[in-house]
Amino acid sequence: MDADLDVACHLNIFVPDLASEQLPAALDAIADAGYRRVVLPPLDPDAVDAPALRALFAGRGLTPITIAGQAPAADVSSASEEVREAGAALLRRALDLTVALGADQMNGVPYGVFGPPAGPTSRAAFERSAAEVGRIADAAHARGVCMTFEVLNRYETSVVNTAAQAMDYVSASGSDHLRIHLDTFHMAIEESDASAAIRTALPKLGYLELGQSGRGQLSSGAVDIAAIVHQALDAGYQGRWGVEAFSRSVLAPAVADMLAIWRHPYGDGAAFAADAAQTIDAGWTAWAPSRV
């Protein structure tokens, strides 16, 4: 990768989980393609050998990014104090693992349960969620970790679907440290203008993920990824980037089902990573002359 950008590659592009025998080779390929970070799938802190994994990443010059989430009985948006406390505890455990792995960023969906929503999220639930997540974000900052929350499409949540809603969520959190994670895959569904959405979130934007409309290679699809890179840089974005794709041939069946990945948009993780790097480079190259 020629672009002087801090870019992360999602591990699930290569392997289904950390137990894969191909994990070392996948990490080698990610590092060789010029990525600085690797995004991990959701992990069970009790089932992870954090020191061994930390050494595996460090040996390749990669820094991990973790993913935090919620569950029906552990949900910070719940009206039940007990369920909210369980949700906050789940996030704190994810934060502990993040620190143990040597990571300085925790992504994910910390604001509620991932999955098809039963209906709209009430303002009260929105504010309960934001307050709890804001407290975790402040605790994460004190430990050297930036906490972000991903803005998802309407089929996966009703809490936060747009950049404008994300800015409202940050405001409701009361935290100066909580950051927004935008993803071009979700933006293509929910935003009328991706560039405008990036500008809206820019004051709190901590992670800009590049994903194609069909979940495949970044160079081919309805989203002009190179143009998004150019436009984000033009708007003044200086944060981290990520690339994400999913193929049923790579994911565990249960995960593929959860994410509604029914096809095989790509078959070679290394080829995907190289194509993504070239696409990002194209956006960078188009933008760089404007700095002179």
Score class of each variant (00 low, 15 high):
A196S: 09
G214T: 14
T200D: 06
R263Q: 10
F272L: 15
L152V: 01
A245R: 03
H186V: 06
Y169V: 01
Y111S: 09
A197D: 00
R128F: 03
A273D: 02
F126E: 01
I225Y: 01
T98Y: 09
I198K: 07
P110A: 15
L56Q: 14
A31E: 03
A74T: 03
D193G: 05
L23F: 01
A79C: 02
A94N: 11
L62H: 05
P265L: 10
A19M: 09
S195I: 12
Q238H: 12
A25I: 02
A73Y: 01
R123V: 13
L5I: 05
A52I: 04
S195N: 06
L210G: 05
Y207H: 15
A125I: 10
S171W: 02
G214S: 14
A201Q: 04
Q217L: 11
G221M: 08
R92E: 08
N161S: 04
A282Q: 13
T148Y: 00
S78V: 11
A31R: 13
Q212D: 06
V15I: 13
G269W: 04
L43D: 02
P120C: 02
Y169S: 01
S175Y: 06
L23Q: 08
C146A: 10
A277W: 01
V160N: 00
A201R: 13
L97Y: 09
G61C: 06
D104K: 13
D281Q: 10
S247M: 14
Q165P: 01
F14C: 08
A55F: 02
Y207P: 03
V223I: 15
V39I: 10
R92Q: 10
P203N: 10
L210K: 04
S175M: 07
S195C: 05
I67Q: 14
A131G: 05
Q165K: 07
T285Y: 00
D28I: 00
S247T: 15
A3E: 00
P24C: 15
E132N: 02
Q217H: 14
S220Y: 12
T121Y: 04
A79T: 15
